[in-house]
Design a protein around this nucleic acid. Structure first.
Length: 501
RNA sequence: GCUGAUAUAGUGUAGGGGCCAAUCAUGCCGGCCUUUCACGCCGGCGACUGGGGUUCAAAUCCCCAUAUCAGCACCA
């Protein structure tokens, strides 16, 4: 029974089921509800540290939080966590902002932690004064040994006055880097070693280009202060922070503050890809990668360059959701999302690899018309002139006796001695179908341009239609090859980056 | 080692005691449509980690095992 017949039959038997079916189809993707959402919606945050541009892992955090802000309304705070002078570089700030722009996040507030050191200091002093923190001057390795054996270090018993004076010495430069740290008193005999008297401030002598401090808060401290002061209501972050959440709980308690709601999603590994910023940096330095947007990388700028749309990334991330299961990121699924977005808009063009110039005997000179998009004829056609000769894909005219050049005509392929010969064989599409001739792409003798198709595996040289020059920065579909973003157009030809089939 | 988390088709997800011989997407296979091996449409394939327990009833609750992951940094 044909699909139409089925539908007709169903409408006779049970018309209400037709609607049901449609409903299923349009089911929209979504995430689970958040707990304790107030009348004013939510305040969420995205908090990258500026050690490099954003990558696909950041996109998950960014979009998950973004989703809820859009869902419930409220504010979305971008917080630049730049409290490690050793890992912040000026150019990264700009790249992060660009990446966020590309992602299309609904950011409402932007704060830099390096602007807020005084706030952290004053709250640290509160903890010191209430006896919930102390300045530890032990060697870090020695402390670790004591901590591992549930033994308190001598500094733990210092008086408030002693702690305050040591704190002053941290700030005024008396202590060199590494000589002192502030610890929260959580309990040195806690069953979980990760909870025991962890550090909340340290001395770093490396200069910071945005501030001239030498004492910096540790993430577990600054995050608590900021989340509370900025009114963050819900935090969605990776499960690598699950211990941090519990650590931060101590600080919330000591300060008498209520915690936001926390959600921790599972680890996401990205198959066959270098994500570590330090490794990428090294690769760029040695010339192994062309830059942060080298298409072999998982940075957002790299996947953007390949023609992956931000919306496709968003859909993928929402689809993955906030489950705590560890997952393997699927390029396949991302590509499918991207295709859904890009297919209706991408113009179609011919791309020919390994081009072979063919003279077609007995063929009339014609101008072929091919739709820019087969499902939207209103967009018009490309015109491809044929004047006796054309370029055919070398690999596809071997071992066949007849082909149809798409939108042109049929050609019989014979073998005269060593060289194949080509003979016009009519315009009839039916004939080609009858013969089961492959329908293949081709390019005019004049009116084509060199085109290099870049893929993560390497480059493919070929030629494509001249008018592709007008598609710079857009995604096109090279028929039977796949979708690609036109990256550059010059006299020497076109460079396109392959996205996916 | 200690602490904690998680385990549903190849991949990602839904389902949180009976409506589950388990959802949806992707993938793969077959068909239809088509001057692309695209898109669209139709059909099919494919999974509850294992073992105990609770219960009339367990993918769902409990315990154990196994596996994986995370944290135990003066990084974030």
């Amino acid at each position: 029974m044909t699909p139409a017949g089925r539908r007709e039959k169903l409408s006779e038997l049970a018309p209400e089921l037709l609607d049901q079916k449609k409903e299923k189809k349009t089911r929209e993707r979504g995430l689970r509800e958040l707990k304790n959402v107030g009348d004013n919606g939510v305040v969420m945050r995205f908090a990258p540290n500026p050690s490099g541009p954003l990558h696909i892992g950041h996109a998950r955090a960014a979009y998950l939080n973004d989703y809820y802000v859009r869902q419930y309304g409220g504010r979305y705070v971008l917080r630049i966590e730049d409290t490690d002078p050793k890992r912040v570089e000026p150019e990264n700030y700009g790249m992060i902002l660009e990446d966020i722009e590309w992602l299309g996040l609904k950011i409402t507030d932007v704060v830099y932690q390096s602007d807020r050191l005084d706030i952290y200091y004053s709250h640290c002093e509160k903890l010191l004064e209430s006896g919930n923190a102390y300045v530890c001057t032990c060697d870090s390795a020695a402390f670790k040994t004591m901590k591992d054996n549930k033994k308190p270090c001598p500094c733990r018993d210092q008086t408030t006055e002693e702690n305050m004076s040591l704190w002053e010495k941290m700030l005024d430069g008396t202590f060199p880097e590494g000589a002192a740290t502030v610890r929260v008193k959580t309990g040195i005999d806690l069953p979980d070693p990760a909870m025991r008297d962890f550090s909340i401030f340290r001395i770093v002598e490396t200069p910071h280009f945005r501030t001239d401090a030498r004492v910096y808060p540790m993430m577990n401290f600054s995050v608590v202060i900021d989340d509370y002061l900025l009114g963050i209501t819900h935090v969605v972050r990776g499960k690598d922070h699950i211990a941090n959440t519990r650590r931060q709980g101590f600080i919330y308690d000591y300060l008498g503050w209520k915690q936001p709601e926390f959600y921790h999603y599972g680890r996401m590994s990205i198959g066959g890809l270098v994500l570590s910023t330090s490794a990428i940096k090294e690769g760029i330095r040695t010339g192994q990668y062309s830059g942060w947007d080298d298409i072999r990388l998982g940075t957002l700028r790299a996947i953007a360059r390949r023609g992956i749309q931000a919306e496709a990334v968003r859909n993928s991330m929402i689809d993955i959701g906030i489950g705590q299961t560890d997952i393997v990121f699927s390029w396949e699924n991302l590509f499918a999302e991207n295709k859904q977005i890009v297919d209706p808009v991408a113009n179609r063009y011919f791309f020919v690899t390994n081009p072979v110039k063919c003279s077609i005997k007995g063929a009339p000179s014609v101008t072929a018309k091919a739709f820019l998009h087969p499902n939207d004829e209103s967009r018009g056609c490309r015109a491809l002139d044929f004047n006796g000769k054309l370029y055919a894909p070398g690999d596809e005219i071997r071992d066949v006796s007849m082909v149809r050049f798409k939108d042109l005509f049929n050609v019989k392929i014979g073998n005269e001695g060593e060289k194949p010969s080509f003979e016009y064989s009519g315009d009839s599409l039916e004939d080609a179908r009858k013969e089961k001739s492959p329908i293949i792409q081709w390019l005019p003798e004049h009116g084509h341009i060199k085109c290099t198709l870049m893929t993560p595996e390497g480059k493919t040289e070929g030629i494509c239609e001249e008018t592709v020059c007008n598609e710079k920065d857009r995604v096109v579909q090279f028929e039977r090859v796949g979708f690609a973003r036109i990256d550059s157009v010059s006299d020497s030809g076109i460079v396109a980056y392959f996205a996916h089939r």
